[in-house]
C-alpha cells in the first residue's frame, strides 16, 4: 500500500531551540493516528508543518506523493484541518463562513450548499445557520470549525483537540464520524491530551517528547511493551521527569507553607 504521509528526518528549530528532532514517520490510508505528547513536545509544530503553515523546516515531507515544499497548495487541497482554540470570523453567519471556506477550496456551489446544509443539520445547527457566529456558544463554534475542516472532503483530516467544548452527544457523533471516515480510507491525525479518547479512537499511537518520537504502535502493542493498563499511565511513565504523585503533594503542601518557618 502507498503511504499517504511520509516524514523523513523532519527537524525544526526556533532560534537555538530544536523543537522537532529527526522525526521519521510513515502513515497509510485508513489509519487513525493518535498523536500525543506533553506540552511543548512539538505536536502543534508537526501539525502546522503538515498543513503547510511552517515552510522553513529541515528534512522531507511528502503527502500522497506530493513534496510539501514544492506543492504546498496541492497538499492543502487534500488536507482538512481543525485547529485548537481557533478563531472564527464572528460577524459572519455560519452559512456565510462555510460558504467562504467552500469557495477557497473551489467547491462547486451546488455541492457546497448541499454539504453545508446537511452538515449543519447533522450537528443540530440548521436553525441558527443564519445567525452571526458571535451569538454561538463554545460548543456551537467548535461544530462550525469541525464542518469547515470536513467541507472539502479531505483525504487527510488533522484534528487538534476536536472535542473541546462539545456536549456528550456531539462527542459520540465525532467519534463515530472518525471511525466511518477511516473505514472509507481517509487518514486521521488526532492530536489531543484526552488520553481515554485517543486510546479508544486510534489505530496507532505516536508519542512525542522533547521533539523526538519515543513510542509508535497500537494501544495493545504499547501495553505489551510497557506493561501498563491505560494510555494515561503509559504516557506518564514515558514522559514525566519527576514523580507525578510528588508534584501533586508539592502543590498541596504549598498551601500549608509560610515564608518564615516553611510550614504553618
Amino acid at each position: 500500500m502507498e503511504p499517504v504521509i511520509q516524514l523523513e528526518g523532519l527537524c525544526k528549530s526556533y532560534g537555538e531551540h530544536r523543537v522537532l528532532n529527526d522525526i521519521n514517520l510513515t502513515v497509510y490510508p485508513g489509519e487513525v493516528i493518535g498523536y500525543i505528547g506533553p506540552n511543548g513536545a512539538g505536536k502543534s509544530t508537526t501539525v502546522k508543518i503538515l498543513c503547510g503553515l511552517i515552510p522553513d523546516f529541515e528534512g522531507r515531507v511528502t503527502v500522497k506523493g506530493l513534496d510539501l515544499r514544492k506543492d504546498t497548495l496541492a497538499v492543502k487541497k487534500i488536507i482538512g484541518y481543525v485547529p485548537e482554540l481557533a478563531e472564527l470570523y464572528e460577524s459572519l453567519t455560519a452559512n456565510e463562513f462555510l460558504d467562504l471556506i467552500a469557495g477557497l477550496y473551489e467547491i462547486p456551489a451546488d455541492i457546497a450548499d448541499q454539504r453545508i446544509t446537511s452538515m449543519l443539520a447533522a450537528f443540530d445547527l440548521a436553525a441558527v445557520a443564519n445567525d452571526r457566529i458571535d451569538t454561538y456558544s463554545k460548543g456551537m463554534r467548535q461544530k462550525v470549525l469541525l464542518i469547515s475542516g470536513l467541507l472539502n472532503n479531505p483525504d487527510i483530516l488533522i484534528l487538534d483537540e476536536p472535542l473541546s467544548g462539545l456536549d456528550a452527544n456531539s462527542v459520540i457523533i465525532v467519534k463515530e464520524l472518525i471511525s466511518r471516515l477511516a473505514a472509507e480510507g481517509k487518514t486521521i491525525f488526532y492530536s489531543s491530551h484526552m488520553m481515554d479518547v485517543v486510546e479508544k479512537v486510534s489505530h496507532r499511537i505516536i508519542l512525542l517528547n522533547g521533539g523526538k518520537l519515543i513510542a509508535d504502535g497500537s494501544f495493545a502493542e504499547l501495553q505489551g511493551q510497557i506493561g501498563k493498563e491505560s494510555l494515561e499511565t503509559i504516557f506518564a511513565s514515558l514522559t514525566a521527569n519527576t514523580g507525578l504523585h510528588d508534584a501533586a503533594a508539592a502543590l498541596a503542601g504549598a498551601l500549608n507553607q509560610s515564608p518564615t518557618n516553611g510550614t504553618e
Partner: peptide, 14 residues
Amino acid sequence: DVRDNSILLPRPVN
C-alpha cells in the same frame, strides 16, 4: 488580522 492564521492560511490560497 491574526484570525486569518487559522482560517485562511491552511486553505489552498497562494
